[in-house]
């Protein structure tokens, strides 16, 4: 499952489960501060200890979808290298969704770990 997130480069359309996970990663990442797309991919890569690499093929459709849902909003701003970049910010509705999804993920991953360890 996690593996497929890293392999989205090969997949034009991630499965629903993976898409949900990616959404959570994005929401969680920009929860701290507004970021542009490239920085989001970088941050996910770094924080996951270089395990997860989100390709732009999955990232941008996901961002547009999240924005369409009203969970994040975007605005143009000057980036760290002095260029115009599109920054995404978490909305209040997005934060609520993120919390729900995170709790859901905790439960799911705990359950999976339990099975992996005991079985």
């Amino acid at each position: 499952m996690l593996l497929s997130v890293t392999e989205v480069r090969q997949l034009s359309k991630p499965t629903e489960l993976v898409q949900g996970t990616l959404d959570l990663l994005i929401l969680k990442t920009i929860a701290l501060e507004p970021m542009h797309g490239w920085a989001i991919a970088q941050r996910i890569h770094q924080i996951s200890g270089d395990v997860l690499q989100v390709g732009q093929g999955a990232l941008y459709p996901a961002l547009h979808k999240l924005e369409q849902n009203g969970w994040i909003r975007s605005e143009w701003s000057i980036s760290e290298n002095n260029r115009r970049a599109k920054y995404y910010t978490l909305t209040r509705a997005g934060r609520k969704v993120m919390e729900q999804e995170a709790a859901q993920w905790e439960r799911l991953s705990a359950a999976i770990s339990l099975i992996v360890r005991t079985a």
Binding site: H36, G37, W38, Q56, Y60, S79, R83, R84, A85, K86
Partner: peptide, 8 residues
């Protein structure tokens, strides 16, 4: 522009 930024 967004995708170009990413590419750059």
């Amino acid at each position: 522009e967004e995708l170009q930024y990413h590419l750059d």
